[in-house]
């Protein structure tokens, strides 16, 4: 079973993603902010990381940059799931090492299709 790390400060979003991904046969691990996400990404091997951008302690962009410095996570796909749609931010995300960018609100179908595409 493929394992996905979901990083989001909103408990509702974490919950919603967890159930949706589990429903589609993924194993899900949750983190509440960027710092926790980076720690979990280092401790466990994931097939995909989904992260929000605006979070306390460490934001998503910084977390991505940190994760990319971890040897085991140089090539792990990272999807950003955010309310941020500014092109400049997208550019920053890409530079930090994100694989893709999904602007909220998203549909479950789009999310699943993207997850399946990048996890392949």
């Amino acid at each position: 079973m493929k394992k996905i790390l979901v990083v989001d400060d909103s408990s509702v979003i974490r919950m919603s993603l967890e159930f949706f991904l589990k429903e589609n046969d993924f194993d899900v691990v949750l983190a509440e902010d960027g710092a926790q996400g980076a720690t979990k990404a280092e401790a466990e091997k994931f097939n995909l990381i989904i992260t929000d951008i605006n979070m306390p302690n460490m934001n998503g962009i910084d977390m991505i940059s940190k994760i990319r410095t971890q040897d085991a996570n140089k090539f792990v796909p990272i999807l950003v799931l955010t309310t941020e749609s500014d092109s400049e931010m997208l550019k920053k995300g890409k530079e930090a090492g994100a694989t893709g960018w999904i602007v909220k609100p998203f549909t479950n179908e789009d999310l699943l299709a993207t997850v399946q595409k990048v996890i392949k």
């Binding site: 890409k94 694989t99 893709g100 960018w101 999904i102 602007v103 609100p105 993207t114």
Partner: peptide
Amino acid sequence: VAEGSVSLF
């Protein structure tokens, strides 16, 4: 970019 859009790099 539009809300709900998906961009893959």
